[in-house]
């Protein structure tokens, strides 16, 4: 059988969805993943269900990984990187390196699904991230709960006061990130909710600028979080975190609603790091002749066609095009698969 072949770069939520959708349409897929395993960042997220599903959608990602691994039409290349791309008629000739091994593929189209990297705090030391072991990122909290089963199992029973700090690297013009990462308010809220169900007496705070709740019933969700779950919402992003006293953390912030500077002690601080373009985006854009937007995400051809690029035969799927939650990523990746299919069958 002479099947069409498509290269998908990135084996995360978007890449897997797109690959599965194409395979279902009878297209062969070469799925290239930089890491040792496919699944992407969301494969490390924890379940946020309490007595019912809280709609974080993390489970969908593992379901897809399972399907991808069973799908004979998808050739999964892990620890792999796209080395060369050359136009070849309507399609492309690509070479993929897996360590020492190199393989060449003739593909009719390419899908960029490279996802994101969390904001790199780099040399910024005000939050003591990387210095104090109990200052962690939201992704690290997700992974810890997923792997250990609970907050206590992951961080010990001494954790009684937990703070979430929103917009670390998002909506921050001082570093050129003039955008909202969209997902952090809801995931922080949902993480707070499962921690509350595990630790009924803990003090849980969320430091925020503008709480971004959207979607069916989410304003009620936030309201309940405050009124029933007793999560404290503090409007103001802390300016400084330092280890004091002993193994606790002191957080200095200005409560903008009270107009006063305050200090509070915490056991665990969770930073909602911004969604930023994944490393290597610039190089990949150059390799494929794609445009990036002001913030370094891949730019679609227009606001109306967000999966199509200025290069014929190259498509975008998921967060590499801009921040999205998991269902939005899945929708976007399916749209990309549809466009790819049209392109290669046209």
């Amino acid at each position: 059988m002479n099947r069409k072949k498509v290269l998908v770069i990135g084996g995360g939520t978007a890449g897997m969805t797109c690959a599965l959708d194409l395979a279902e349409r009878g297209v062969e897929v070469v799925l290239v993943e930089r890491e040792k395993e496919i699944g992407g960042r969301a494969a490390d997220y924890c379940c946020k269900a309490t007595d019912e599903c809280n709609r974080c959608a993390a489970c969908l990602v593992l379901q897809q990984r399972d399907k991808v691994l069973q799908e004979p039409l998808i050739r999964v290349l892990t620890s792999a990187e796209v080395k060369n791309v050359a136009r070849n008629g309507k399609g492309y000739k690509v070479s993929v390196a897996q360590g020492e091994d190199k393989s060449e593929y003739d593909v009719q189209a390419i899908v960029v699904a490279t996802g994101f990297d969390p904001y790199d705090l780099g040399k910024r030391s005000e939050f003591s991230y990387g210095v104090e072991k109990n200052v962690i990122s939201g992704l690290e909290l997700e992974r810890a709960i997923k792997e250990k089963g609970s907050l206590t199992a992951a961080f010990g029973s001494g954790i009684q006061k937990i703070g979430f700090i929103q917009c670390v690297g998002s909506r921050d013009l001082s570093i050129g990130n003039g955008y909202c990462s969209r997902v952090c308010c809801m995931y922080a809220a949902k993480l707070a909710k499962i921690i509350r169900s595990e630790l009924p007496d803990a003090d849980i705070c969320i430091f925020y600028m503008d709480f971004q709740s959207f979607g069916k019933g989410f304003s009620t969700f936030k309201k309940e979080l405050g009124e029933l779950d007793k999560i404290r919402f503090i409007r103001g992003i802390p300016s400084k975190i330092y280890g004091f006293p002993y193994d606790r953390l002191t957080v200095r912030y200005t409560d903008s609603l009270e107009g006063r500077q305050k200090e509070e002690k915490f056991d665990l601080i969770v930073l909602s790091l911004a969604i930023t373009p994944s490393r290597g985006s610039r190089e990949l854009a150059a390799q494929l002749g794609l445009q990036l937007d002001d913030y370094g995400f891949f730019a679609p051809r227009s606001d109306e066609e967000t999966v199509v690029t200025n290069q014929p035969g190259v498509f975008l799927a998921g967060v590499c095009e801009g921040p999205k939650d998991i269902p939005q990523t899945i929708g976007h990746a399916r749209a990309a698969a549809g466009e790819v299919f049209n392109y290669i069958s046209g």
């Binding site: 959708d21 606001d303 109306e304 066609e305 967000t306 999966v307 939005q328 929708g331 976007h332 399916r334 749209a335 990309a336 698969a337 549809g338 466009e339 299919f341 049209n342």
Partner: peptide, 15 residues
């Protein structure tokens, strides 16, 4: 902007 993406997704499905 979400509408745009939903329309793209639905066009792919019915396609």
């Amino acid at each position: 902007t979400e509408l745009t993406r939903e329309v793209e997704a639905v066009a792919a499905e019915v396609g």
